[in-house]
Amino acid sequence: MTIQFKKETFRDDFTFSNSPEAIRRFPFPFDKDQYMYAVNIEQHMPGPEKSPYEFPIDIDEHYVAEMEDRALVLKQDPLRCQSLPHMITAEWDLVELLMESMAKNYPEHFQLTRDGDRWHWVNQPLGIDQRFTFGDTATLPCPPMEYITRQCQGDFNLLDQRHDNLWMDAGIVTTQADWSLDFDIGMNFMEWHAPVPIAHDLGVFDRALKFLLNLQQGRPVRRLNWTMTINPRLDTSPENYHKWGIDRTTVTPENVGNKVHLRVELQALWRLPRSNAIVFSIRAYLIKMEELVTIPKWARRFHRVLRDLPPELADYKGLTRYRETTVDWLSKYDDGAPTSPGFFPD
């Protein structure tokens, strides 16, 4: 299966859009008509064909454009990619995980040849052909984590495990929902989740941490998270909030369909073999409201979820300013009919 990579932008003129196929495979995150935090972790097992869960690492039509956007972010702010010195083994583990997975599941685009420590990596969409020695940083043009994550969709964090906690000691973060790697690097699991409201009191993070400390090799897990973004902007970082925050004031009843996006994060976690670290990947998927309502079930359900969201959650996710306008717009697509259980379109 050859993917047709789109030429599009996530900034300035915002030409991003989803093809009808991409809409149908969108990881819609609500299986009920209301939303509340939960430790919604499940095994990251292969899912239905063509879904974003079909393979461990999902490559889609936005691949090339997203990688171009990441390169622009890193050029402007190199602090988006950082790694503490003790994470080098985990960086190599990540190289292996991503290259193996991409080459195995998308052989028409990526090829990996291994001869002991001598590896040969070909990335056709980005025009890369690299021979290197696995484990020898000097044989790559940049450090291993940065090298491979400049070629893979999604943000990646490497979590060191010590003293019965997980420590965010490395990462590349250019498509984030308003959190700063530069600020959070070195924090433990409880600390970097500090700004999240409600969930702490529900014990969500205590249970999640206990679960993740025992995460096993060969048994990755995933969960979905969501927020909303005005304009299809991947880089909604706090660093640049003074530039993009104003977008939230530009929503009108006329432009909701094109401007307001549901942003879903497919978060996956793997135990890495050599380092015993955990890789935490956060892959963002965007969908415009006018694309979302082409699936009648999702239109009805998202209208109800957004309408009934607790105000502190709406505030935390930064939706308050445009929630009402969006709910009004969505209400036209909700006839009050019951929705079927589960995530997928009818």
Binding site: F183, D184, I185, G186, M187, E191, A194, P195
Partner: peptide, 8 residues
């Protein structure tokens, strides 16, 4: 913001 970095 009520968010503190030990490193910084």
């Amino acid at each position: 913001r009520d968010h503190y970095s030990r490193r910084l």
